[in-house]
Amino acid sequence: MSAMLTRPVRLVAFWCWFAGQIISSARDVLADILTPGSSATPRVVRLPLDCETGSRSAIMGALITLTPGTLTLGVVDGHRELLVHSMYHRDEESALADLRDMESRMLRAFGPRTREDLA
């Protein structure tokens, strides 16, 4: 019951954090556009998901695509992995670390929602 009561607070905290991520990413993209040269290091990474349901995977894919500089390219293995294009991560490990951080924050905010919850 307490998880249900704290859910609105967790959702607001997540959306505030995510708005900050959008602003930060947009600033990085804009700086790259307005300055000579390019700081882009494009790469495609395969992100294994901890999400238990397709709806949570879809939310994660949408959040990635909404963030400037990243794009969800597709779903692999049902809803268990996403292919993600990243423009500004220096290496695959940093890209995966940031994406896993986003997923863990999203799951805390929305709740893990397991298959048993659906029954």
Score class of each variant (00 low, 15 high):
D28F: 10
W17G: 01
T53Q: 07
T41H: 12
L47N: 04
T41F: 08
L47Y: 02
D117G: 01
A95G: 00
T70F: 06
A62V: 11
L11M: 15
V84N: 00
T65L: 05
L96I: 06
A26D: 10
S24Y: 12
R56I: 04
L34K: 12
I59C: 09
L96Q: 01
W15H: 14
V9F: 14
P42A: 01
H79K: 01
A31H: 15
D98G: 15
L47C: 02
R90C: 07
G69M: 03
M87W: 02
R113V: 13
R115M: 07
P68D: 01
G54H: 08
L47Q: 04
T41Y: 08
T72S: 03
A13S: 13
H89F: 11
M102D: 01
L73D: 01
S55E: 12
D101K: 11
A3V: 13
A31C: 15
D91Q: 02
L82N: 02
M60V: 05
I59Q: 12
A3L: 15
H79T: 08
R10W: 05
M60Q: 05
D91K: 02
T6G: 10
T35V: 09
A58V: 11
R113S: 09
M1D: 11
S38Y: 05
A62M: 11
G111E: 04
E92H: 01
M1F: 12
G69A: 09
L34A: 14
H85C: 00
W15P: 07
A95Q: 00
R90N: 07
Y88V: 00
T65K: 02
D91T: 00
I22P: 07
L5G: 07
L47S: 01
S39M: 11
C16R: 15
T41I: 10
S55G: 07
L34F: 15
R27N: 12
V45F: 01
P36T: 06
A19T: 14
L34T: 14
Q21P: 05
E81K: 09
V75K: 14
A40Q: 14
I59Y: 09
S39H: 12
I33M: 15
A3K: 15
M1I: 12
I64T: 02
